[in-house]
Design a binder for these strands. Structure first.
Lengths: 210, 210
DNA sequence: TAGATTGTTAATCGATTAACAATC
DNA sequence: TAGATTGTTAATCGATTAACAATC
């Protein structure tokens, strides 16, 4: 797999995927780089470069064939390989994420939902049961899990992280607004929704709409 | 206000804010650019440039005074000005967001929670009641709201957006994974969590942890 | 003072955009 | 064919990083 694709390009690919899926739903057969560019408010040359980066090519005069383009994106982004993951923290956000069916389309399969609140353990969320953290290593081994989502309160996040790392988790998607300490062989990405909101408001100001 | 601050810098500021808040909780009085840089995995020169961009300066040899730095960030990011906003779509994610107290720290005040499901209207979520969309314009006027958060299913998102725009909303933070059409005087930011997840997994691969 | 850390200029790097040839 | 759209090279732009002087 080409590892030279740039991070900005990588971040745009899922949006191309959404657009091509919607185009298919709408019954389109081809889509042009200019159409995609307009929807995402980027340059159309950039769209073509991004698409070229994953090895797909369009047809001059007609554009990009939506079904093939979709397939190439799924292939490049690995949506066909099922990735087992667990989620720790069955609060409102945790429950919202575990109920979101959209993730399956992207290859994410939640195989465990954990919390330490005795009142929550055993509760059924969609097709999943909330488990005690005591069952963690058992489930990680059973499903060969390397990915974890953390939606616990910030004060517990480092403890949970330490436990996950000790249990062999290699990639952590954390919604706690703190910097987590992990060894070099573990990757953490912090999804701080309050920070995202702040950026959104700042950008709105910059566009002079507020 | 300096409008020349770059977007990448702008996106890092909320993370500096988290770090300085945590440093204060930990009882620190000063923090160095190198410490911040390490936590965020960026260059320390960049941290100093970012801080300089909002007009704050540290002290050679000691670093940045945490309380003053925090104040400057709050000031620049406008956390002291209360921003009224509404949320449309009282599903799991919508409820999770409306229960999240963290937003208040960033100046966001949710003054209305809307849904069109009759079974949900009237329900109490934290200190808020779910309202019918019929009450929309009333509440927007009463609280002078220009910001909306959309957590409705993707198929309804464009309809809701049209309604919000017609009612005078100027900035929309949407969690629906589709490109929304809005006039030029309205700003939309799409927060596609599935796309964010995909990027997270790709980055983990790139770091060779998976 | 010596040393550590900031502030800032200059150099580098890479992403975006412009121009235009290739192609169906 | 003519025209539209892709593919690609070159130019630009701006963000990051390196080097080092300023300062407490």
């Amino acid at each position: 797999m080409d590892n030279n694709i740039s991070v900005p390009t990588l971040k745009r690919l899922p949006y191309y995927y959404n657009i091509v899926c919607n185009a298919i739903s709408a019954g389109d057969q081809y889509i042009s780089s200019a159409e995609i560019a307009k929807k995402l408010d980027v340059d159309d040359t950039q769209v073509r470069k991004d698409i070229a980066a994953i090895g797909y090519t369009g047809k001059p005069k007609v554009g990009f064939e939506v079904h093939e383009f979709k397939k190439q994106l799924e292939n490049y982004l690995g949506f066909n390989e099922i990735r087992n993951a667990i989620l720790v923290g069955a609060g409102n956000l945790g429950i919202a994420l575990s109920r979101y069916e959209g993730f399956e389309k992207y290859g994410l399969k939640l195989v465990g939902l954990f919390d330490n609140d005795p009142a929550k353990i055993g509760l059924q969320i969609a097709d999943k049961k909330i488990c005690s953290m005591n069952n963690l290593s058992e489930i990680l081994k059973k499903y060969n899990v390397e990915i974890a989502i953390i939606t616990v309160p910030a004060i517990y996040a480092q403890n949970v992280t330490d436990l996950l790392v000790k249990s062999g988790i290699k990639a952590i998607w954390s919604f706690a607004p703190i910097s987590l300490n992990v060894p070099d062989n573990v990757y953490v990405r912090t999804q701080d929704l309050a920070a995202n909101f702040t950026t959104f408001v700042q950008m709105a100001h910059r566009k002079n709409v507020l």
